[in-house]
Amino acid sequence: MENNIYELQYAIDTFYFLVCGALVMWMAAGFAMLEAGLVRSKNTVEILTKNVALFAVSCIMYMVCGYALMYGGDFFLVGIAGGETLVSDALASSTENGFDGDSVYSPASDFFFQVVFVATAMSIVSGAVAERMKLWSFLIFAVFMTGVIYPIEGSWT
């Protein structure tokens, strides 16, 4: 019975991460529309391109090395899906933490929740340099910001 409750707790905590992550992902759309609305119309397509491309670059770079630099684990999220012992490990960890302790959830849902914050941070940069910065230089900066700079800072906390 206790294990059943832990299973449900794991499921609902994972689901909470995923749903809130999807809402934060939606902030990328919000920033894109906000910035497109605020720049002069001759800069619209470029700011839209920056916004969609920075989101994609953030997701890829954080997957490649950012998440590993920030939280440990392997590059390219190797092993994030969990292996044969996924269920028993999660149950053991839940039992150790008890009902009042830290939540136990899917590592993949944690990545999903974290990666959308990286993209949000990068959106802020795009707003700050709107109408002024070269597209490809911006995207190359995005590679370093989301792959290294943000994760190193994040790892300090």
Partner: peptide
């Protein structure tokens, strides 16, 4: 349950990263 919710999380992750 743990296995299904982990699978849902992988689906979210993969869907997002494939689009990127």
């Amino acid at each position: 349950d743990i296995a299904s919710s982990n699978s849902v999380a992988m689906v979210f992750l993969n869907t997002n990263t494939a689009a990127a």
